[in-house]
């Protein structure tokens, strides 16, 4: 359970009946937050990654064998287009394959991935990162907080999953939860209202206060990019060329 869930009892989220009524079958886009995260992980001199979305997990939700999480106690984020499995990663010409039979390489790739994710703004950091439980020996812990201290910048909302089955022996799972999947208007429209950062502050605000925005001013034009508009650090809306 992610940290958003600690201390929560009887937390329930209903699958909207409207969603079920239209899902027979219907077309959906992958999570916008997930798409943005992948762009930021890989663009320019970013990471090289190989993997897949696993959309097939949502193509027949009435089939009892599809769509479930590893634990079998819920519907996978993949089924709703909110997950991506990375099976190779690299920074240069060569790629590291996530293969738990070579645990040093697996750890090197995971370390590379976590370090990169830590550089992203919190709203583009996933809710769930799942990897082989063999990595516990490398981190020397399975405590999320202890691992996060090795990667300053990782959001405390992230839930690490240590899979003790063989399912994640060949890839790392990244996914966003329901409420952080990304609303197109919040990422694009002039109605974007929930930022409240101090323009003189160029560091990430203290997450512990819960009151500050989380965005670096210099990243505004990058992350709030629109087809026709972009936000400036002054928060004025100006026209821009398409990216």
């Amino acid at each position: 359970m992610g940290r958003l869930g600690k201390g929560i009892k009887d937390g329930v989220r209903e699958i909207p009946k409207e969603f079920l009524e239209l899902a027979d079958p219907s077309s959906f886009y992958p999570s916008l937050a997930l798409l943005c995260m992948l762009v930021e992980l890989t663009e320019g001199s970013g990471l090289k990654i190989a993997g897949g979305f696993g959309f097939w997990r949502g193509q027949n939700l009435s089939d009892a064998s599809s769509g479930m999480t590893v634990k079998g106690d819920g519907v996978s984020d993949h089924a709703f287009g909110r997950g991506f499995d990375i099976d190779q990663i690299g920074e240069g010409q060569s790629l590291i394959k996530f293969d738990i039979s070579i645990p040093d390489d697996y750890y090197q790739g995971l370390d590379m991935l976590l370090a990169k994710i830590a550089t992203l703004p919190k709203f583009l950091q996933p809710d769930s990162i799942v990897f082989s439980s063999v990595m516990i020996t490398y981190f020397n812990t399975q405590d999320d907080d202890t691992i996060m201290k090795n990667y300053p910048g990782l959001g405390p909302h992230i839930d690490f999953g240590f899979d003790d089955t063989s399912i994640h022996n060949g890839h790392i799972h990244l996914s966003f939860g329901w409420t952080r999947a990304g609303h197109p208007d919040k990422l694009s429209a002039s109605s974007y209202t929930y930022q409240n950062y101090n323009t003189s502050d160029t560091t990430f605000p203290d997450m512990n206060t819960g009151t500050s925005g989380i965005y670096k001013p210099e990243n505004y034009s990058k992350y709030m990019y629109l087809d026709k508009y972009q936000y400036q650090s002054t928060l004025t809306l100006t026209r821009s060329t398409c990216r």
Partner: peptide, 15 residues
Amino acid sequence: DIGAGPNLSDYPAAY
């Protein structure tokens, strides 16, 4: 605080 909100219409996927 930490996210870009849910999908349109609060669906689990972007319809």
